[in-house]
């Protein structure tokens, strides 16, 4: 009994310790962002690896999610004779929820895991220590460019996901199932609000990008520098980042749409 209590206390303290380290890490990361003004090339390179390399999976998933949504929604809406509303419901679902959230999850899986593995490997092969000993701050040269690149890439990826999703829905709804094209677009346009729906979705995706990048980079930085440690950290990144995206989505939705 006492043992178990002790174990619980140890786990709790360990958790708090990691939480504290994570936040100190974030603070140093944010402070290091300023130095990027002089090194934009570093950020461009990272946008390539977190953004461009994630593009294909985002576009393909967006297309299929949009098509499936249209199919499902059509079957429900047609029962109410309201298939013209397909465009609105589709767009709102994508912009408010699925765009940011699914992109966030895919981003955590594709870019987040790659970030953790890369940084973990840099730690395991002493590259981070090597930089420190060359009087180069890894926060400025390694962590900050990756962080910024993720924060920039994530909303763009989410926007592409939603846009491709709407197009996929259009293909299935209008071209395949015969919903009136004019009604599809006009209903969508009159009921989707720029600030309320589109901008809130963009804010969500920026927040998700921030959190996923933070978790991924920190897990890599904090991993045990062995191959086993790196692989564990990578798994932890995907799990924690996905949970963070889902949890934050609930929080943000409650804040934004519950006025």
């Amino acid at each position: 009994m006492l043992d178990r209590l002790q174990g619980l206390g140890k786990t709790g303290i360990g958790f708090l310790e990691r939480l504290g380290r994570g936040h100190i890490f974030l603070a140093r990361l944010l402070l290091a962002l300023g130095s990027l003004v002089f090194k934009p090339g570093l950020v461009i390179r990272q946008i390539y690896s977190v953004g461009v390399l994630t593009l294909i999976i985002i576009i393909v998933s967006g297309l299929f999610v949009g098509m499936v949504l249209a199919l499902q929604l059509y079957n429900t809406l047609v029962g109410f004779n309201a298939e013209e509303s397909l465009g609105v419901v589709l767009a709102l679902t994508l912009l408010r929820e699925l765009g940011p959230v699914v992109t966030g999850l895919l981003f955590a899986g594709r870019a987040g895991s790659a970030l953790t593995a890369e940084i973990g490997l840099m730690k395991a092969t002493e590259q981070l220590s090597g930089l420190e000993m060359m009087a180069v701050d890894p926060y400025q040269r390694i962590f900050a460019p990756r962080f910024l690149a993720a924060v920039v890439a994530m909303p763009l990826l989410a926007a592409m996901f939603s846009a491709v999703g709407v197009l996929g829905g259009y293909l299935v709804g209008v071209e395949l199932l015969g919903v009136d094209s004019g009604a599809f677009w006009s209903q969508m346009q009159s009921n989707v609000d720029f600030n309320m729906d589109l901008m809130n979705g963009v804010i969500k995706s920026v927040v998700f990008g921030l959190v996923v990048a933070w978790i991924a980079i920190f897990e890599g930085f904090d991993c045990i520098p062995t191959s086993e440690g790196v692989s564990r950290a990578t798994t932890r990144t995907v799990v924690n980042a996905s949970l963070a995206v889902l949890g934050l989505d609930f929080l943000l939705t409650a804040l934004m749409f519950n006025a």
């Binding site: 767009a91 912009l95 846009a163 346009q189």
Partner: peptide, 20 residues
Amino acid sequence: FFMALGIAALVMLALQVSNL
């Protein structure tokens, strides 16, 4: 190319999908 595509997607969402 990536940035242009992303911004194009945002503009498309703003003009074609929302009421902007």
